[in-house]
């Protein structure tokens, strides 16, 4: 193993970690506002990728297809909240979480019915040979993944800190009751959180689809990893981004440096990290109060 391979694995890790981060942010948004772990989060990524790939195959220009897919999945997220979560509003959190598991199964089933069991192709956003960075290859699509994630994270942070709607969401996340006393419509905020989670998941799914393939079951693995990343980050927004990147890099380094054949245990690596974190630092590595989210 030579040094440039370490750089190479780190690049792959940051790349997949950026996707985990986007999905983790979706978990955090919903959890902070509603207390629900939304197990359909991975399926948001799948739906985004499938819709975009399907529109591109129908010869829509990629930027339009991507935008439509993100908006469509955000709408799916909002509808999930409006149509299922809100009517069951008085149910316990556990019940609501189980509802999201049901939604995840439903989305997968609908995807197989609509698009079939085979992967759907989404071409790379820009063609071109890999760039060379410190002897490692950096693919044009990697730049898209990292760039998109950076833009989303910065945009999200501005949204939460500079806009009224964003501040309202943070207020509800901090103290729902007090926020309502201040005249914030907490129910609308819940819908917005699910829509945001849908949009974030869709972006993650779309940017990873060119190298990973879009198919009906792609959300299962991504959702689990995003969940681990969110837990690592203590269910806070900043922590989730860090958690995603760390998880991605650790996974790829383990697969890359471990003896031959260890790549088949990437999931195991993720869950060992998760268990260790829950045992020794339940608030995530930023040390939040366990069980409280934050935006």
């Amino acid at each position: 193993m030579e040094p440039q391979h370490l750089v190479q694995f780190a690049i792959f890790g940051l790349n997949i970690g950026a996707i985990y981060a986007l999905i983790a942010l979706g978990f955090v948004a919903v959890f902070s506002i509603t207390g629900i772990i939304n197990f359909a989060q991975g399926e948001f990524a799948m739906l985004g990728a499938m819709i975009a790939a399907w529109l591109v195959r129908a010869e829509w220009p990629l930027p339009v297809a991507g935008l439509v897919a993100v908006l469509a999945v955000a709408a799916v997220g909002a509808l999930l909240e409006l149509g299922v979560i809100r009517p069951a509003g008085s149910a316990s959190i556990v019940t609501l979480i189980i509802i999201t598991i049901g939604a995840s199964v439903l989305f997968k089933g609908l995807a197989v019915m609509a698009w079939g069991p085979d992967p759907v192709r989404l071409p790379p956003f820009t063609a071109g040979p890999p760039l060379r960075v410190l002897g490692a290859r950096l693919l044009p699509q990697d730049l898209w993944v990292l760039g998109t994630t950076a833009v989303v994270v910065v945009g999200l942070s501005l949204f939460f800190r500079r806009t009224l709607q964003g501040k309202a969401m943070r207020a509800v996340a901090m103290n729902r009751y007090a926020a309502r006393l201040m005249g914030i419509d907490a129910r609308r905020t819940s819908t917005a959180a699910f829509a945001l989670a849908g949009g974030l998941g869709a972006i993650g799914g779309i940017v990873i689809a060119p190298s990973a393939s879009a198919y009906w079951d792609m959300g299962t693995g991504l959702g689990l990893k995003g969940f681990v990343a969110a837990i690592l980050g203590g269910m806070g927004a900043g922590g989730a981004v860090l958690g995603g990147l760390v998880l991605g890099v650790v996974e790829e380094l383990c697969a890359g440096l471990a003896p031959s054949g260890f790549g088949g245990y990437k999931d195991a690596v993720a869950f060992v990290i998760l268990l260790g974190m829950l045992f020794f630092r339940p608030g995530g590595f930023l040390g939040r109060v366990p069980g409280r989210g934050g935006l």
């Binding site: 391979h5 190479q8 694995f9 792959f12 890790g13 790349n15 997949i16 990873i208 190298s211 990973a212 393939s213 079951d217 792609m218 299962t220 693995g221 991504l222 790829e252 697969a255 890359g256 031959s260 054949g261 260890f262 790549g263 088949g264 245990y265 990437k266 999931d267």
Partner: peptide
């Protein structure tokens, strides 16, 4: 080299690099 991946894997680039 013998490398493996989970059936749910979305990326095999690390294994291929090895």
């Amino acid at each position: 080299a013998v490398e493996s991946y989970e059936p749910t894997a979305t990326d095999l680039k690390t294994q291929l690099t090895k």
